[in-house]
């Protein structure tokens, strides 16, 4: 393969990292509070608000069941409003974040559900406010689960980001389609796929290692 193609691959790899990194960050920033909200507002929860819970839950489910490709197109006007343009790598981050955010909120919700109710009750008995319970009990106690959630969300984003070419986002997936598929370059196709597999492996491996490290530090076997 020529230096030009290697350069292109290198550039696309950078775009993919940029898209996953920023949309992953946005998904965390939005998904974590939303996950806490889903967790806390259930009947019998920290701050029961059954109606709010039902509405937010419905919206999250609806967003999660919308196919990514449709989400991307549907969000075009919004993307233009936020980023100033609807085409390009940065523009692709908006639908990516929107796809990952509701997923992240469910992952956070289920990580928080793993926290033993007795521990929360003990904190309540000690006079902790709901906010203190979230910050000092729920988050620290569920760190391994949250790390696993972030890992899963990022792995999913690797797949979604491959479709970003549709909105001119570039990235490895785009190279695979335009060079590997449309210009009959199986070698390019193979290299992009191998890079993406390696990315997933690295993300998964790092996430698992971090989670295990925290568990071990706490003297917990997993």
């Amino acid at each position: 393969m020529s230096a030009v193609i290697w350069n292109l691959l290198f550039k696309s790899f950078g775009e993919t990292l940029y898209m996953i990194g920023l949309s992953g960050l946005l998904a965390c920033l939005g998904g974590i509070p939303l996950g806490v909200l889903l967790y806390a507002t259930v009947p019998g929860g920290l701050m029961p608000r059954p109606w709010l819970n039902r509405i937010v839950g419905f919206v999250v489910n609806a967003a999660r069941s919308t196919p990514f490709i449709i989400l991307m197109v549907a969000l075009l006007p919004f993307t233009r409003f936020v980023v100033g343009r609807s085409i390009g790598t940065t523009a692709a981050i908006v639908p990516l974040a929107f796809a990952a955010l509701p997923f992240m909120s469910r992952l956070v919700e289920s990580a928080l559900k793993e926290v033993e109710p007795g521990v929360i009750e003990a904190a309540q008995a000690m006079g902790a406010s709901p906010w203190q319970i979230v910050c000092k009990v729920l988050f620290p106690e569920s760190v391994p689960g949250l790390l696993r959630g972030v890992t899963l969300m990022l792995v999913n984003l690797v797949g979604y980001s491959a479709m970003a070419g549709v909105v001119g986002g570039g990235g490895l997936g785009d190279v695979a389609i335009r060079f590997g598929h449309q210009r009959f370059r199986p070698d390019v196709m193979v290299v992009t796929v191998v890079i993406m597999i390696a990315m997933v492996q690295v993300i998964q491996g790092t996430g698992d290692a971090l989670a295990r490290c925290v568990q071990r530090r706490r003297g917990l076997e997993d």
């Binding site: 007795g118 521990v119 003990a122 009990v137 620290p140 106690e141 706490r218 917990l220």
Partner: peptide, 8 residues
């Protein structure tokens, strides 16, 4: 069940 914080 003691209910200690495993994170601390």
């Amino acid at each position: 069940g003691f209910n200690l914080l495993s994170s601390r």
